[in-house]
Design a protein around this nucleic acid. Structure first.
Length: 839
RNA sequence: GCGGACGUGGCGGAACGGUAGACGCUGGGGACUUAAAAUCCUUUUCCCGAUAGGGAGUGCGGGUUCAAAUCCCGCCGUCCGCACCA
């Protein structure tokens, strides 16, 4: 048999076969061990991109591999379908966000199916379906009733033109990313989830996530940002507006005698009190409030303060007075919104003190001997021993800190506390295309939950996007309702939930989807936690933290027994491509340019093009490659194979035409082997060993998600088979090769499997086993070194005695020449590996 | 500023402290062909050498070790995350 493997025929054929047989439907009642493999579900943006292909290919290999190993595998797919792009499309193209979203889902579903993923499509859902978000509303109410949801005024980035709240990352240089209008800081009543209640649990839980990347655990740890310290009160020298003290937090109580000032946030009650009496203070506060809350915004802002004239008394010395400033760098929502400044040992305080000519005192030193050294050009933040600190003098920093906390608690002016960087999760969005928050506002009864029998609260379809702002808010009837409690006139909450809520529990819904409640506990727990979760590192913090929180909240409510949703996590690298720029600096797409010798030219105009850096595929850089035409040209398996070869999965993968060509070549090589398995009588011992070693190595590589290594192993085996003479072993090796290739190139494997005359599908075949005896060779190649440098290699029987090895090595001509008659001082023998002769 | 990762041929990358460069891509040479495609063979870290062989070599400088890409110390560079966090 000859010819070529034709994916345009084979792909479709096997995809329908798997579909007809329900090969990948997950059976909850199966007796097999259960494995839940999940990739982060996609946002239906329009078309599949290479990043999706890479992500889902990796998950698919794991899913298929586990299935072959005899596991019952749950490998579902769905759509994270709410979000802003749909509304933007609605504004730009005058289509309803739902229509746009569902059309995208149809397109992308077809594209995914062309890749032949072993997915259980029966469980597919989209989060924008009331059948999903209705259950989410029920869960929200569960959290509400458990006291994990509250409403609070909070400061937000407000775009006055689009009339919406912007996330920090949507504020660019102080302006709204769409409207370009200067962003205002505004107070708005928002719904919050009490994630901070779980701060310690979420932090402690990280220690058990052994199969998570260290990097992600660290990022979460830093994000939660637990710090221990002292919270204490400064008494005001004179009460102002009924305020008699100011509360501060510090992680360095040991520096308490180094204090030179107190600074409060612009929103702090003391600041407001000062403003009442002093127009200068009021003006300063107004200045602080202008501008966005983004990180970039804050970074560039100059450190400024305003002396209020108010004074406080040092808690450890009634005679000691400190000035109170209003400062633009003090945050109202971290700690207490007030600090005491220790310029000698905090760089920011140091700069502030320089600017406002405040004392800079040394209270920490390397030793008491250098207590009188002045502080130099920057603050000394390292710990040491306390100096110039009265009763603390000579104590190491940590002991001094404990001593201050002890005294504060004893005297009642302060206490040891823990602060977190983590804030409660604000989930209100002033958008249409999201899950409506199931709350009704009544003038008499306040915020009342929507009764359960009225769920889901469904989004109205008749909305317009002609005017900016939230269409739900200006809908003629939707928000007008009766209060469920008193029957009086009331209005619906028109904010919708942050889309991160949708993705905080979808993995539970995949595992169990009863029509009448969010999930069935017993059913869900058959699958959960997810054994292997795969996605981009960009979700290392938010999504993964929110999902962990949501799972813990459900656990606290007694709804589920697990506390961690994802046992194994893998963050894959991006797909990148070279960028090209025309003379005028505009970006050109890969199919607009052509390589001409060593240079690149614009195909249309023939003008030279400057190749730029290799970067993540993005629309703005125009360096994307659409998977669909590639798929049409090379077939699913070549694309899948390329996604797995070369680059380690956690690193970036550079797309290249040559790479996909290489993958395609491999597909054809396997096909040729299966077309003519060249069987004959007799065994081929070396090939057999190679085969068994490969079975072992490939299994190990896939297990460790080292797909590039599995690929390399399979190339080697393929070459070995090609070079082998016909034998029974060779035929067996071809058959086994197909099994090994099956998780990665499933259509090819099926096609070849059938070619070998197999009746059943390879999808249902078992992963091959290996004989451990065959992994060990009878003969080994020993490296022979002189003074650590390789001088010769020699082949010897395994387990050769030390003395014999030494003799063999010394007999080597190269060794003799190196020794030049001298006798070796020492000979080191590593059995079956190496001899090192020290001359 | 804080935290982290990485640095190996022309390129992507392999390498329990033990033969550096597996495997793939690219390039060179060749076979088959009227020719091409496809395929196959061969070669490809650098330097000296016809070969045998020798020298250098894993960002830079030190160290530990019989032996270091790998462990330790100090630099340099690139990338990522966080950031007035008290």
């Amino acid at each position: 048999m000859s010819g070529r493997f034709d994916p345009s025929q084979a792909d479709r054929r096997w995809q329908s076969r798997w579909n007809e047989e329900g090969s990948f439907a997950a059976d909850s009642n199966s007796n097999k061990p259960k494995t839940y493999v999940l990739e982060m579900f996609p946002y239906p943006s329009g078309r599949i991109h290479m990043g999706h292909v890479r992500n889902y290919t990796m998950g698919d290999v794991i899913a298929r591999f586990r299935r072959m190993q005899g596991h019952e595998v749950l490998h579902p797919m769905g759509w994270d379908a709410f979000g802003m792009p749909a509304e933007n499309a609605a504004m730009e193209r005058k289509v309803h966000p739902g229509e746009w979203t569902w059309a995208n889902i149809r397109t992308m579903r077809e594209q995914l199916k062309q890749l032949g993923f072993a997915l259980d499509w029966e469980r597919e859902f989209a989060t924008c379906d009331p059948a999903y978000y209705g259950h989410e509303q029920a869960l929200f109410l569960d959290l509400f009733e458990a006291g994990l949801v509250y409403r609070k005024e909070s400061e937000v980035n407000w775009d006055p033109v689009d009339m919406t709240v912007l996330a920090n990352e949507q504020v660019i240089e102080g302006r709204g990313w769409r409207s370009g209008a200067p962003v205002e800081r505004r107070k708005l009543a928002q719904w919050f989830l009490k994630i901070t209640d779980f701060a310690d649990d979420l932090l402690d839980g990280l220690a058990d996530l052994k199969d998570w990347p260290e990097k992600v655990r660290l990022m979460q740890e830093n994000w939660i940002g637990r710090s221990k310290g002292l919270q204490f009160r400064f008494r005001l020298a004179e009460a102002v507006d009924g305020l008699s003290d100011v509360e501060v937090f510090t992680t360095r109580p040991d520096t308490i005698f180094g204090a030179s000032f107190v600074a409060v946030a612009a929103d702090h009650p003391i600041a407001r009190a000062a403003a009442n009496a002093d127009p200068g203070a009021a003006e300063f506060i107004a200045e602080c409030k202008a501008g966005g809350t983004s990180a970039a915004e804050i970074e560039t802002a100059e450190k400024k303060g305003y002396a209020t004239g108010i004074e406080v008394v040092h808690p450890l010395d009634p005679e000691w007075r400190l000035p109170v400033y209003i400062a633009n760098f003090v945050l109202m929502d971290y700690g207490t919104g007030a600090i005491f400044g220790v310029p000698g040992h905090d760089q920011r305080d140091f700069e502030f003190a320089k600017q406002y000519h405040l004392p800079i005192r040394r209270v920490v030193a390397a030793s008491t001997a250098v207590a009188s050294e002045p502080i130099g050009t920057e603050a000394e933040t390292a710990p040491g021993v306390a100096v110039n600190s009265r009763f603390l003098d000579g104590l190491p920093s940590d002991e001094a800190a404990s001593e201050v906390i002890r005294r504060a608690e004893q005297a009642g002016w302060g206490r040891g506390t823990v602060q977190y960087r983590l804030r409660d999760w604000g989930v209100s969005r002033q958008r249409y295309w999201g899950t409506p928050i199931p709350i009704i506002h009544c003038a008499n009864c306040g915020a009342v939950p929507v009764p359960r029998d009225q769920l889901p609260v469904v989004l109205p379809d008749d909305v317009d996007f002609e005017t900016p702002g939230n269409p739900l808010d200006r809908h003629p009837t939707w928000k007008t309702v009766e209060c469920p409690a008193c029957g009086g006139p009331a209005t619906r909450e028109t904010d919708t939930l942050d889309t991160f809520v949708d993705s905080s529990w979808y993995f539970i819904r995949f595992a169990s989807q009863p029509p009448d409640r969010p999930f069935d506990r017993t059913e869900a727990e058959k699958w959960l936690p997810v054994a292997q979760y795969i996605g981009g590192v960009e979700h290392a913090i938010l999504h993964l933290l929110y999902a962990r929180f949501w799972t813990r909240a459900l656990q606290r409510l007694g709804r589920i027994s697990i506390s961690e949703p994802f046992r194994g996590l893998f963050t894959q690298g991006m797909v990148t491509h070279e960028t090209y720029r025309a003379g005028d600096g505009s970006w050109l797409s890969p199919d607009e340019v052509r390589k001409d010798g060593d240079d690149w030219v614009h195909i249309e105009s023939g003008v030279p093009v400057t190749p730029g850096r290799v970067e993540k595929m993005s629309k703005s850089k125009r360096n994307t490659v659409d998977p669909e035409p590639i798929l049409a040209k090379y077939g699913a398996d070549a694309v899948r194979w390329f996604m797995l070869s070369d680059s380690p999965p956690e690193r970036d993968l550079e797309w290249s035409e040559a790479g996909i060509e290489g993958a395609s070549r491999f597909v054809q090589r396997v096909w040729r082997l299966a077309s003519d398995p060249k069987t004959a009588e007799g065994e081929d011992e070396p090939l057999k060993r190679k085969l068994h070693r490969t079975i072992s190595a490939v299994g190990e590589a896939i297990d460790g998600l080292q797909f590039n290594k599995a690929v390399a192993q399979l190339y080697e085996l393929t070459t070995a088979i090609e070079k082998a003479n016909p034998s029974q072993t060779r035929a067996e090796a071809v058959r086994t090769l197909l099994l090994l290739v099956a998780p990665m190139a499933p259509h090819l494997a099926e096609e070849c499997w059938a070619l070998l005359g197999e009746q059943s599908m390879i999808a249902d075949a078992s992963w091959p086993t290996f004989d451990p005896e065959l992994l060990i060779d009878d003969e080994v190649t020993l490296a022979v070194q002189v003074n650590g440098k390789l001088r010769d290699t020699l082949v010897a029987p395994r387990g050769l005695a030390r003395a014999d090895v030494e003799a063999l090595a010394l007999a080597s001509g190269n060794v003799q020449r190196q020794l030049a008659g001298a006798s070796p001082r020492k000979i080191i023998v590593v059995p079956d590996r190496l001899v090192n002769i020290v001359a």
